[in-house]
């Protein structure tokens, strides 16, 4: 099960990276988000999985796809100047980061200890529990997040409107 969702996630992300057509890349991205939601379910966290589906696969990807269609730039434009060295260097950087990180995770004693200590599946996260923690300990943060969403909305309208 874990392997299936991990493969959906990684192949979706890889498809996004390699796809030339931007709309198809966006749809690959949705597949990756669905895979991540599946991983969250396996992590005994259905609340986060539902949020992932609603916010990422729903809201953010619809926003991105709408903008892609509005801008009518479905294909990548021809490069102004080719930077072969920079491209190889960046590919090398990403690969080195991935390889180094995986090596670190596999060799880490602390991660191994945490993995064996928490091997038993904990009770699934419930919305009730999350709500209690959120409103008991993080009420101010919750309010600030609401204010920030409002500010972002006003900012987005102000940036896209031609003349207010």
């Amino acid at each position: 099960m874990f392997l299936a969702f991990a493969l959906i996630t990684l192949l979706g992300a890889l498809g996004m990276l390699l796809q030339k057509n931007i709309i198809v890349a966006g749809l690959f991205m949705v597949a990756a988000f669905f895979g991540i939601a599946g991983l969250f379910v396996l992590l005994a966290n259905p609340v986060a999985a539902a949020l992932q589906l609603i916010v990422y696969s729903g809201a953010i990807m619809v926003l991105v796809l709408f903008v892609i269609m509005m801008l009518s730039s479905h294909e990548e434009e021809a490069a102004q100047a080719s930077h072969p060295i920079q491209r190889w260097l960046s590919l090398l950087l990403a690969l080195a980061l991935a390889a180094g990180g995986v090596k670190l995770v596999m060799a880490s004693k602390g991660v191994q200890m945490l993995a064996s200590r928490g091997a038993a599946v904990p009770p699934a996260v419930t919305l009730q529990g999350v709500g209690a923690v959120l409103f008991e300990g993080h009420l101010l943060g919750f309010e600030v997040a609401g204010l920030m969403l409002l500010a972002a909305m006003v900012g987005a309208v102000a940036l896209t409107k031609r003349n207010l």
Binding site: L10, M16, L39, S90, L93, G101, A115
Partner: peptide, 24 residues
């Protein structure tokens, strides 16, 4: 735990590659 961390790392590397390699 290692499996999830490896998936997260590979996902991060793919995202980084997308930022660095794509021009759109």
């Amino acid at each position: 735990l290692q499996g999830y961390l490896v998936v997260a790392l590979l996902l991060f590397a793919i995202g980084l590659a997308a930022v660095l390699l794509r021009r759109t």
